[in-house]
Design a protein around this nucleic acid. Structure first.
Lengths: 226, 226
DNA sequence: GAGGTTTGACTGATTGTTCAGTCTAAACCG
DNA sequence: CGGTTTAGACTGAACAATCAGTCAAACCTC
């Protein structure tokens, strides 16, 4: 039920599609079982093929999982960049950044990246390949924040301060909140984390931020996990 | 060289010692190999016994590792409490808290807790037992911070603000920096994280903080990991 | 039919856990 | 006190399950 859109593509396109399917499958498995407990057989089953084929495409299990991580981070970053593009003022762009990491409802199109991050960090301690993905991603993301800050300073929205230093601190804060959100902490819920982060940003950058009433979800928190 | 202080103890004291030895051994193994890759055989070897004995004391592997995590967190918390006791002003107590999570050199008496935390978080996603340890510890730690803030407000050191809210934000910030420090991020080094955290605290609480020149380590960073 | 793709069956290694006892030191007893 | 019982601590060997990776043969598709 998926082979109807591949016929006249370039050679290797089908194989590329296969690869990507497997990466997505791997991400689902990782999200469900955790990085270290993810088995090749699970990924194969999720992708609807045999374990041997998975090994055929990705030489080793570690390679498969690491590439899956990179794939996920790339997706996340692309989504962020895409959303930044259509927002014209820096304060709103910054708010979108904070929302992306704090509000799970905000991106239904992504699998639950939070738990994935915890695995990414934990694996980075001992897997140099994973560590590289993490480091690149962090640097990339910090630079995105710093860029927004500099834009805002140029347009007069934000006050003067070291954009890099601010980016480092804000992304640490967001990472910390991401942990609490990923683990469904009873005290630190997403909205609280979002508000606290925005308050920090507004105070540091010298712009005013008003918590807007969100129109959706009048009833309360949603437990996304099964 | 350790059997001279057990003769007339209560029965079971030696066994208790054994247990603790194994917990410490488990922590070393976890620090070295990571939680999910820690094997019973490793712990046994580290403790100088057989795998069977480890199972004899802790029914299952999961139980062993979980108890080890709890043990580590308790130790960490105890160390913190002990250090708080001897400091008489709130600002310095807060600085000590920040130093404990940011400056690796500051507690040589503890194994590298940072990598342990990453495992703790990652495992919490799927291990309810571990999640409980994490949640309790976080709540405990936040309350410690809030207590220091309230002390400081009582003595007039700090300005007025919601202590709980501040504690939530600061501990998130510290967690975020802990990640970078644990992973030896080339951009976010311990001293920078420490300074940024203190700047945030000082600004929020309305006290002045001056980065003191540290007398040790004139040459630069130390790579603790082998 | 040639080359990339796919698979089922297999293997080799790892590892948590069990088990059937051994050893030791204290408790019991006649 | 000398001998026996008992309970806890401990061990080596084996078991059973899991799983990453291999391989030779089949299967498409151009």
């Amino acid at each position: 039920m998926a082979q109807d859109k591949e016929s006249t593509d370039a050679p290797g396109a089908a194989a590329d599609q296969r690869r990507e399917d497997m990466l997505r499958a791997a991400l689902e498995v990782i999200a469900e079982r955790g990085f270290p407990e993810s088995r090749i057989a699970d990924v194969a089953e999720q992708a609807g093929t045999s374990p041997a084929l998975v090994i055929y495409y990705f030489k080793t299990k570690d390679n498969l999982l690491t590439e899956a991580m990179r794939f996920a981070e790339d997706q996340w970053y692309d989504l962020g960049a895409r959303r930044m593009e259509v927002i014209d003022n820096a304060a709103a762009r910054l708010e979108e950044i904070v929302a992306m990491t704090c509000l799970p409802e905000a991106d239904a199109e992504l699998p639950d990246s939070w738990a994935l991050w915890l695995d990414l960090w934990a694996q980075s301690v001992r897997h140099p390949e994973v560590a590289r993905v993490r480091e690149e991603f962090d640097a990339h993301w910090r630079e995105t924040i710093a860029g927004v800050v500099r834009d805002g300073q140029g347009s007069g929205e934000f006050g003067d301060l070291d954009a890099t230093e601010f980016a480092i601190t804000l992304s640490a804060l967001l990472d910390g909140f991401a942990i609490q959100i990923a683990l469904d902490d009873p005290v630190v819920d997403p909205k609280r984390a979002f508000a606290a982060s925005m308050r920090f940003a507004a105070q540091s950058l010298g712009f005013t931020w008003k918590p807007k009433k969100d129109p959706s979800s009048g009833s309360g928190k949603k437990k996304a996990r099964k």
